[in-house]
């Protein structure tokens, strides 16, 4: 009977989908561990950097000759939104939620009469933003070929952003990424990176009455440190994103696997009932035939 065959085909197709989602879940789980480790390994550098920068900023004060990266261009007309998403799908609402937050920011900034430009990192975010704001995207980068994001990748992106900043393409830059909280929660986060918000110095370093000596001088150090700080922040966002993507993917695929299982159960029940019904009908036909003779 056609109905039975159809059911059989559907069950088989759901089963193969389940195999795919299961495999993807396992891959994500394995990758998540690595991504989490590298995110953790990168933390000391970023933390030290923040501490050093905090010290310096406190030392330099609010002098008007402070670098532009720190105090801004004095205007907030043109905003660059750097939207970092994943290059691959199959990770639930991860990409969409970052894009949604970026979109809210775009609407808010445009409502205030400001100009918005978009810098996309990652394929999925670009695809989603292109639909609405294709004319705002000034640049997009994909990291799909790169297996493990290294500092060099972040450095390249930071260099491009710096070039744009020096050319006066924008006044402020905001970075959007998915912050990794734990496997179940990833928080889409907005971070202002230009002008750099000086990190709060949590602890005053104990220099026992001594005053810091700067080699060469404070400004020169600040000038080399700020571009690096930008690269570090982007690097951190990329690593957090990588971990978040895998976590989101793992959860989404776990759900999908479970849903596929439920579907297979329901379909199998239907299949068995239909088979039983077919047998019963055949029996009735045979008995009816025998009686009429």
């Amino acid at each position: 009977m056609a109905n039975l065959n159809e059911l059989k085909i559907r069950i088989r197709s759901v089963q193969s989908t389940q195999k795919i989602t299961k495999a993807k879940q396992m891959v994500a789980a394995a990758k998540l561990r690595r991504a989490e480790e590298s995110a953790k390994a990168a933390r000391p550098y970023a933390e030290r950097m923040e501490a050093v920068l905090g010290n310096l900023v406190a030392g330099v004060g609010d002098g008007s000759n402070a670098p532009k990266l720190l105090i801004g261009t004095g205007s907030d007309k043109v905003n660059l939104l750097i939207v970092a998403t994943a290059d691959r799908g199959l990770c639930g609402a991860f990409n969409s939620s970052i894009v949604r937050q970026a979109r809210e920011a775009i609407v808010r900034l445009q409502g205030e009469g400001k100009e918005v430009k978009i810098f996309c990192i990652g394929k999925k975010g670009r695809e989603q933003l292109k639909r609405l704001y294709s004319d705002l995207i000034v640049k997009s980068v994909e990291l799909i070929e790169i297996k493990n994001v290294g500092f060099a990748n972040a450095r390249e992106i930071a260099d491009e952003i710096l070039q744009m900043f020096e050319a006066g393409t924008f006044d402020q830059a905001h970075l959007f990424y998915g912050k990794f909280k734990n496997v179940l929660t990833q928080i889409p986060t907005e971070l202002q990176i230009i002008p750099a918000k000086a990190p709060e110095t949590s602890e005053v370093p104990d220099i026992s009455g001594g005053v810091y000596d700067y080699e060469p001088d404070e400004e020169a150090i600040l000038n080399t440190l700020l571009p690096r700080y930008l690269a570090v922040q982007i690097f951190r966002a990329l690593l957090e994103n990588a971990a978040s993507e895998q976590a989101a993917s793992m959860t989404a695929m776990d759900n999908a696997t479970r849903n596929a299982g439920d579907m297979i159960d329901a379909l199998t029940l239907k299949f068995n009932r239909a088979r039983q019904a077919k047998i019963t009908t055949e029996l009735i036909e045979i008995i009816a035939g025998a009686e009429s003779v």
């Binding site: 050093v52 010290n55 310096l56 220099i207 001594g210 005053v211 810091y212 000596d213 700067y214 080699e215 060469p216 020169a220 150090i221 080399t224």
Partner: peptide
Amino acid sequence: TEGEFGVFAQHAPVMST
């Protein structure tokens, strides 16, 4: 940047590229 320097404990605070 301004020459090699050795650091022991109790060095004066310095920040250098």
